[in-house]
Nucleic acid binder design. Sequence first.
DNA 1: TTGCTCCTCACGTCACGTGAGGTGGC
DNA 2: TTGCTCCTCACGTCACGTGAGGTGGC
Lengths: 148, 148
Amino acid sequence: MTPAAAAPERLLRIGEVAELTGTTPRTIRYYEEIGLLRESDDRVHGKRRMYSDADVARLRELIRLRDLLGLSLDDLKRLAEAESARAGLRERWEHAEEPDEQRRILEQALVHLADQLKLVRERRGELERLESELAARQRQVRARLKAL
Amino acid sequence: MTPAAAAPERLLRIGEVAELTGTTPRTIRYYEEIGLLRESDDRVHGKRRMYSDADVARLRELIRLRDLLGLSLDDLKRLAEAESARAGLRERWEHAEEPDEQRRILEQALVHLADQLKLVRERRGELERLESELAARQRQVRARLKAL
DNA sequence: TTGCTCCTCACGTCACGTGAGGTGGC
DNA sequence: TTGCTCCTCACGTCACGTGAGGTGGC
């Protein structure tokens, strides 16, 4: 059953997830503690946490927004809740059913994407300004070196 | 004496500095406490702190590196110490004196600038990847909207 | 069986926030 | 004189770090 069988969904342990995402087990447990990551509800207290590839992708995304945009864990929580609310709606109205509702959901997603893009672009602008200032100073120092 | 007189060096209070730099007085006092900002040594305990325009520029730079590059206050301190060590050297060998030493100092400055530029460019690359991913998702949602 | 990774408290730390209570300059 | 901003403790908080002591799967 090597070829076309459904992949058996390999589960990862917390240490592997930490390494894959560039964090620590402690951080992952903390994110679960504050409700940013869901606790796989079939787990018994004291037993090992197990994670799917989807969990890893989700954590990666959170870390990216945290580091690149400087969002607080509270921001991330609100963001994730809004996202899963949209996902819930999407599920309910997925195929067929009221095209009006489908349109409304997609438009909401667009607003959300536009918000995030705005943040990202502002940050990029600031970084570019910093970069060109540093580059200018670099040219200046090089010119002075040549003048010797 | 309006025109060519040396500007009387207007001094600012902590609240004004906080507003100009987008922080809080508490943060400025904390930076002083850990030695990231120098305490203007003529100040008597309990009296108001006063800041020059140069102090404001310095604080702005620190905040920029903190926010855009995610540096810790310890990183910033090391960075500032290295910078002022270079400034000290520069002062000693400023005009004339051993051109060999001048060259060495300038080359050190170049290394430092290259290090910072590397960090800035890496960050910008990450941000650009995030941006293009978001833009792609935006196009996808728009296409789906049109398909309705 | 022996390491290794995992587990749960629980206290420590970094970077400030937030009052409490008081003093000083337009 | 009256606000307003400033001052110094000092405790609180957010986002984890760091052991202590113990259990479980190759």
